[in-house]
């Protein structure tokens, strides 16, 4: 089966992200998060393991946040000195499912799109501004570099006696600080280079998006994720 059109994949990803913000009901969130996460991990895990790592870190961060700010209601679990209440679990689940849906959609896009087509297809078919399409294409270029940075940083942290798995805020800071600082420097120079290669002169050539069987299936599945919660009477 051929790869779906980059534009349709982009629309799909964007729509799922919007739904993740709109839906509040746990069943609606489950409907968009689990299938997209499963499909995303299947399609995009090899290309973007880092997103899965970041997702797990984010969910853990969400839990810590919820534990300190929304830990009220009935007691759900007691783990030594930690008393986890309904509010913390509900908040973590709600935000975690949203993150899962967004990460799943991102992984579907990364796994399904041909990176070198992204900038051309999104510009030509969706008429997106070149600054957005280039940022997307460059992000995909950065993923393997971030993966390499991540593995180097993790080894350096181990040499310096930090935990193998970063789960406390302080640990996460020592991981993210070098990761972001290095990426920032890289982005500045990449920006200079592309400008010197005429990026500001770039004029896209427009064309209509192609819609075949694969795209039709994808759009139908999207429609189902919009309609099903309404038909089932789940609150948004």
């Amino acid at each position: 089966m051929r790869r779906p059109s980059t534009s349709i994949l982009f629309i799909y990803g964007l729509a799922i992200t919007l739904l993740a913000f709109i839906y509040r009901d746990p069943y609606s969130l489950l409907l968009i998060s689990i299938p997209n996460a499963v499909a995303g991990i299947y399609l995009g895990y090899r290309r973007a393991k880092l997103i899965v790592v970041l997702l797990l870190l984010s969910i853990w961060g969400t839990f810590l946040n919820a534990y300190f700010l929304a830990n009220h209601g009935q007691v759900v679990a007691v783990l030594g000195p930690l008393v986890i209440r309904e509010g913390a679990v509900r908040a973590t689940a709600q935000i975690g499912l949203r993150l899962l849906a967004i990460a799943g959609a991102a992984l579907i896009f990364i796994g399904g799109a041909e990176p070198e087509q992204i900038i051309r297809d999104l510009e030509a078919e969706l008429r997106l501004p070149k600054t957005i399409t280039f940022s997307l294409a460059y992000a995909l270029r950065l993923i393997p570099l971030l993966r390499r940075d991540y593995s180097e940083i993790m080894f350096c942290r181990r040499q310096r006696g930090y935990r193998r798995i970063a789960y406390l805020p302080g640990d996460i800071k020592t991981l993210l600080l070098p990761l972001l600082s290095i990426a920032y420097q890289r982005a500045i120079w990449a920006g200079i280079t592309v400008e010197l290669r005429g990026f500001r002169k770039r004029r896209p050539r427009y064309r209509r998006p192609r819609i075949g069987l694969v795209e039709a299936l994808l759009l139908s599945w999207l429609a189902l994720q919009v309609v099903l919660p309404i038909m089932a009477g789940w609150t948004m």
Partner: peptide, 27 residues
């Protein structure tokens, strides 16, 4: 223009798209 570090300069995922990117920009 060729800068110090190739990793900071290469913006596209494949050699073909990297070279074509310059020409696309220039129309």
């Amino acid at each position: 223009a060729v800068l110090q570090d190739p990793d900071k300069q290469l913006a596209m995922p494949t050699p073909y798209s990297e070279v074509a990117f310059t020409l696309e920009n220039l129309g």
